[in-house]
């Protein structure tokens, strides 16, 4: 069985922010919410690196472990999704997530948080596939159409890889061999352990 994973090749990421834009555009993500963002390490220094970060769909998702209303579930191929009808916007998942993936739209005054929003691996949510309800709550369901997440599919340098963990690992392994080293599987240990 496939196990969906993200991998960002820091050697290739040029911080163009196209993945961020593609995600926002594809899912019509509201203002103030970024399901994906690019972070820069050692900004302005020699050896500066950037990586594109979103929900990594962890093997033993800490967000699901701390959720007081148990609104998280994992698909058979390892995509971590949540039910917005159950979410109470408590923010526990944000504190638990090692990647800062959960986002909360500000819906009213005094900083009241709305329902949590995060990357769905373009797999929608617990609504009828391709329905309006699914699109409004979770965004487009590309996975059901046999397509991979748009952020990875349109990455111009192919820095961001998404798909079955075995396929992603193979592609990355070949790259590392070709360039003679510098492997950097940023976030993989935290997200997937040794699996």
């Amino acid at each position: 069985m496939a196990r969906m994973k993200f991998l960002c090749d820091a050697e290739r990421c040029i911080e163009c922010q196209a993945c961020v834009t593609a995600c926002k555009s594809e899912h019509e993500v509201p203002w103030g919410v970024n399901r994906r963002r690019v972070i820069v390490m050692d900004d302005g220094l020699p050896g500066e690196k950037s990586v594109s970060v979103a929900c990594m769909h962890c093997s033993d998702a800490p967000c699901a472990a701390v959720c007081p209303v148990d609104c998280f579930y994992t698909t058979a191929d390892g995509i971590v999704l949540h039910d917005k009808d159950l979410c109470i916007g408590c923010g526990y998942c944000f504190y638990a997530c090692p990647f800062g993936a959960p986002q909360y739209p500000q819906q009213s005054a005094f900083g009241v948080r709305g329902k949590m929003d995060k990357c769905t691996f373009c797999a929608g949510g617990p609504e009828t596939a391709h329905s309006e309800a699914e699109y409004v709550k979770y965004g487009a369901n590309r996975i059901a159409e046999g397509k991979l997440p748009l952020c990875a599919e349109m990455c111009s340098t192919k820095a961001l890889l998404a798909g079955d963990g075995d396929v992603v690992s193979d592609i990355y392994r070949q790259r590392v061999m070709r360039r003679g080293g510098r492997p950097q599987t940023w976030g993989w240990q935290a997200a997937y352990g040794n699996a």
Binding site: D70, C71, Y73, T74, T75, A76, I79, L81, H82, D83, D85, L86, A123, G124, G125, P126, E127, T128, A129, N141, I143, A144
Partner: peptide, 8 residues
């Protein structure tokens, strides 16, 4: 305990 997702 949320809704069933047929694509999951």
């Amino acid at each position: 305990k949320g809704k069933h997702d047929e694509t999951a």
